[in-house]
Design a protein around this nucleic acid. Structure first.
Length: 262
DNA sequence: ATGGTGGGTCACCCA
C-alpha cells in the first residue's frame, strides 16, 4: 500500500497537476495539505473519475486537508482535541484497509516568538496527544503531512543559516522529537539514514534553482506500520517548471501483515 | 537584515 503526502498549495490551482500525477503513479492513498478550499468547492469529481474516494476537511482560503483513497474510507474524524474554538482545518483521519491514516498540516508559525508560533507549539502538543491515544488503542497508523519542521541538520540546506529560524528552531525540533520518543518513526529517515532529500523549496528568491530547501513533509509510522515498511521516497520532478506547488510528494510503502499480531 | 513569489480574497493576510 503506497501512501503519499503532498502539500499542494491550493487544490484548485493544482487540480490538473495532481490528477496527472495520480494517473501516472496510482498510489493507494494521497494525503493532501493546504487545499485552501471549502468542502463544497473541492474539485472531487476530478479524482473520483480516476478511482479515488475522498475525505475532505476545508475552510475558505487557508489550510485545508484531505485524504484520497482507492480503498474504502471509514470512521472519518476531523480536527484535534485540546483547543476550544479552534476552527483551523488542519487534521483529518480515516480507516483504510485496517489502518488509521491521517493528513496533518502543522501551522507554519510565521516567526519565532509570535502568537502564531505559540499556536504551532500548542498544535504539536495536541498532535502528540493524538499519537499517544492511537498508540494506546493499539492502532496501526500512518500520519503524513506538512509538519513544518526539519528534524535534523541534514534536513536543511544550511544548518547555520537556519539555526533559530522558523521550521528549524530548537523548540520545534524538540517538539518533533518528543513525538518520536512516544514510539513513532519517520518513514523516509528510517529507510535513508544519511540521504539529504528536501521536500520543500521556498517560492521566493530562487530557492529551487539554488537547491535551498528543507525536509519538512513527513510520514510518521506506528511500530506495526514500521515493521511493514518496504520503502520511502519523494518526487522532486514535480517541483520543476511553472505553476507547481512549493512542496513535492513524499511516500512510503506499507506491505501486508506477515503474521498474526502477538 | 530584508525581500523575494505565489497562493488566497478583494486591501491585505499567509506561506
Amino acid at each position: 500500500m503506497r501512501i503519499v503526502t503532498w502539500n499542494v498549495n491550493s487544490i484548485r490551482k493544482r487540480e490538473e497537476i495532481v490528477r496527472d500525477w495520480l494517473r501516472d503513479h496510482a498510489p493507494d492513498v494521497l494525503l493532501l495539505q493546504e487545499t485552501k478550499v471549502t468542502d463544497d468547492k473541492f474539485p472531487g469529481a476530478s479524482f473520483e473519475e480516476i478511482g479515488y474516494r475522498l475525505a475532505i476537511h476545508g475552510q475558505p482560503g487557508l489550510n485545508g486537508v484531505a485524504i484520497l483513497s482507492r480503498h474504502e474510507l471509514t470512521d472519518i474524524r476531523t480536527g484535534l482535541d485540546g483547543e476550544e474554538g479552534d476552527e483551523q482545518a488542519r487534521y483529518i483521519e480515516a480507516t483504510i484497509a485496517g489502518m488509521r491514516v491521517a493528513s496533518v498540516y502543522v501551522p507554519n508559525g510565521t516567526s519565532v516568538g509570535s502568537d502564531k508560533f505559540d499556536y504551532k507549539m500548542r498544535f504539536f502538543a495536541r498532535l502528540q496527544r493524538r499519537i499517544r491515544a492511537l498508540l494506546e488503542a493499539g492502532e496501526t497508523f500512518v500520519i503524513g503531512g506538512d509538519y513544518n519542521v526539519a528534524p535534523d541538520s541534514i534536513d536543511v540546506y544550511d544548518p547555520r543559516a537556519c539555526a533559530g529560524e522558523i521550521c528549524f528552531h530548537d523548540d520545534e525540533r524538540r517538539a518533533f522529537r518528543s513525538m518520536l520518543w512516544n514510539g513513532v518513526y519517520d518513514a523516509f529517515r528510517s529507510v535513508h539514514a544519511t540521504r539529504r532529500q528536501f521536500s520543500w523549496w521556498d517560492m521566493r528568491g530562487g530557492s529551487w534553482e539554488r537547491d535551498e530547501g528543507m525536509r519538512i513533509d513527513h510520514l510518521l509510522l506506528s511500530p506495526e506500520a514500521l515493521d511493514r515498511l518496504e520503502g520511502s521516497d519523494a518526487d522532486p520532478s514535480t517541483r520543476a517548471g511553472k505553476g507547481v506547488s512549493d512542496h513535492i510528494p513524499v511516500w512510503c510503502d506499507i506491505g501486508e501483515p506477515q503474521r498474526p499480531r502477538w
